[in-house]
Amino acid sequence: MTRPPDPPVVNLVAEEQRAALRNPLEDAVTVSRSLVPIPVAPVSNQPADADLRRGDVDAWGRSERVRAIARTIYDPMYRYWFRAEWEGLENVPTDGGALIVANHAAAIPSDAPVIMHGLEVELQRAVYGLAENLFRTLPVIGTLWSRTGGVPAHPDNAYRLLHDEQQLVLVFPEGAKGTGKHYRDRYKLRRFGRGGFVEIAMRAGVPIVPIAVVGAEESMPILWKSKRLAALLNLPYFPITANTLLFGPVGLLTYFPAKFKLRVLPPIHLDVEPDQERYSRSRVMEESEKIRDQIQIALYDMLRTRRSVWFG
């Protein structure tokens, strides 16, 4: 344990003379300095964690290095393929935690990367995307998903990210019901789960920021679903998409270049005490329904002004 060096020896007489002129406020500061020792970080013989680390994977499995590579690869897709256009970005808080909720679409969801990439590029803030924990069971994909900011959708994970770490967290309350819907049902929001996302935001004491996304529905539309194959492969749904009909297996990886438009709605501050054991179910469902309505109305509004699926 090393101590900070002692202050230099001062001329006591001069000090006494100066003391007479000192104002009491200054005195208080001096006294408190000598009485309350400044906490010194214990010097251990252990090197700091940062010197020992070989990688930059954080507690959530996210790596900024991998994320930067993913951003470089994905940026042309975002800019020139989907030509994402934002509206109301000022509604996303620049600091502190916030739960971002959006409508969910496309057989292999194209909206999650667009929102995560968009917010990170436009606002320079990391976004953690909550998703089905089934991702974790997939080799390679699961690891890449986690390195690029994916987090299994466990209530405790969401709470920690929002409350303890004050991060931006993206969640799709519709879940697989949103991505697995037919093309004919496009832009009709499914049920918003059991409102779990509202409860987490209440508990964490953070606002909810709804986003309405137009374009994802047309990027990989589902024409037909096989219940039997889904059950056989243990998947939430087994879709035949327009993409696979046109391009064959390549269609699994190819999106149609639908124009993406995203509208960020004003943040909703839930006026409740955080960290409660439980919250009124009716209140939670009411808020959840209200947010669903807001996104639905915004979607209809955006669709009214959309002239072309491809050019917006």
């Binding site: 974790r136 069971t137 466990h154 405790d156 994970n157």
Partner: peptide
């Protein structure tokens, strides 16, 4: 398990 939270608290 794949359904696990990121970190377990004692009461989980």
């Amino acid at each position: 398990n794949y359904k696990d939270p990121n970190s377990f608290r004692e009461e989980m």
